[in-house]
Design a protein around this nucleic acid. Sequence first.
DNA 1: CGATTGTTTGAGGCCAGTCAAAGTTAGTGG
DNA 2: CCACTAACTTTGACTGGCCTCAAACAATCG
Lengths: 201, 201
Amino acid sequence: MKIQRGRPLHKDRHVYSAGEEFKSVFAVRSGSIKSYTVSNDGQEQVTGFHLPGEIFGMDGMAHNHYTNSALAMETAAVCEIPFSKLQDLSIAIPSLQRHFFQLMSKEITNDQQLITLLSKNSAEERVATLLLSISNRNLRRQLSGTRFRLPMSRADIGNYLGLTVETVSRVFGRFQKQDMLKVDKKEIEVLDFDKLRALAN
Amino acid sequence: MKIQRGRPLHKDRHVYSAGEEFKSVFAVRSGSIKSYTVSNDGQEQVTGFHLPGEIFGMDGMAHNHYTNSALAMETAAVCEIPFSKLQDLSIAIPSLQRHFFQLMSKEITNDQQLITLLSKNSAEERVATLLLSISNRNLRRQLSGTRFRLPMSRADIGNYLGLTVETVSRVFGRFQKQDMLKVDKKEIEVLDFDKLRALAN
DNA sequence: CGATTGTTTGAGGCCAGTCAAAGTTAGTGG
DNA sequence: CCACTAACTTTGACTGGCCTCAAACAATCG
C-alpha cells in the first residue's frame, strides 16, 4: 500500500488538530502520541495513548473533521495513510475492508472498557489497569513487560483516568510501599504482577 | 436493502448476548434497547441506550463475537441487518461503505464524549447531559423534546453514568426543587432548558 | 545556572457512596 | 379484580475516597 513516510515529529508537535479536515489515519512508527479532545468549556480530555505499531485518527471519519487532536509526547515518527486510498483499495480487496472495520470496532471496545473503568473502579484500580495495558502492549512489541518507560506525564495519566495529578502520584507511592512497583520518575519496574493483575482485573 | 423484519421483542428479552457470533447489526424500529457489558468480576456496565431509528450491534465486528449484550427495556421491534449482505453491498455501493464507516466513527465519538463526562463532570452534570441527549434524540424523531418518557430505570441511568441509584434519585429531587424539571416516575417535563443546558454544557 | 515545568507531600473539606429503612409501583396468581 | 409479593424508588444518616489548596522539591531547558 502506498503510504507516506513521516518526517520526524518533535515533542509537543501536533499530527493533526481538532476541526481539521479528515484526510488520513496514521500509524505510529516510533515514539508515542496522545489523542485528546477539548470540551466546550475548554478543558482537555485525553482519550488515548498510541504506541509504535498502533493506528490512530479514526475519530474524524464521522464528520469529515477530526474531533480529537493528536500530538507527540516525545520525538516520534508516524506514517500517514490517506483515507481515499484506503477506500479505493478496500473495494478492490475486501479483506482489507474487513480489517479496517475490525480496527474501528476494536477502538469502540477499547473506549467501552475505559468507560467501565472510569465508571466502576477506584483510583488504584485505574492506574493498575493502565500500567498493565502498557505492559501488554510492550510485550507485543517484543519489549519487556516488566521494565518500561511511561511516555506520558503524571498529568496525562490523571487526565486520561479521571484523576488529579496528586492522586496519581499518591497511588504510585502506595504501589511502591507495597513492593508492587519500583518507580523511578517515568521508569517503571513491575515487582509483583499477580498483585497488579488482581487490582487491574 | 434486504433486511429482516423483526418479530416483536418482549421486555427483558435479549437481541443478542455477549459472546455470540457476530452476524448482524440492528436498527430499532420501536421501543428501546440497552447495551451492556459484564466485566470479568461480574458486574454490569450499561454502554448505551438505543431509541427508534438508531443502529446498534457494531461492537462485535472486531472479534467476530459481540462484546456487549443487548436487551429490550420495554416491548420493542428491531430490524436485523446481516453484515455479510452489508459488506457485499458496500463494495457495490461505495457511498454505503462510507456511510457505514461514519456510523462506527460516530459511535467512537459518542463513547469519547461519555468518557469525558465520566471523567470530568459532577453527578448533576451527568444526569443533565443524559436528559438533554434524550430530549434531542426525541426531537429528531419528531417527538416532543420537553415532555417525554424515560424508558430506562433509575438503576440503568446510574449504571450508565457511573452513579448509584440513590444519587440519581437525589439529583432528580434537586432538579425538581429548582423548578428545572417536573418528574413523575419516568415521565419527564423540562421546565427550564437554559438551566439544563448550562449544566449539561 | 536561574526559570519554568513537573512531581511529591500534607492538611482539610466535600461530594458521592454505603447502609438502612420506608414508601411506591408493577406484576402475579387466585 | 384484588391481594400479595417482588422490584423499584425515595429519603436519611453517616462514612470515606478523592479533590482542593498550598508549599516544598526535583528535573528540564534555555
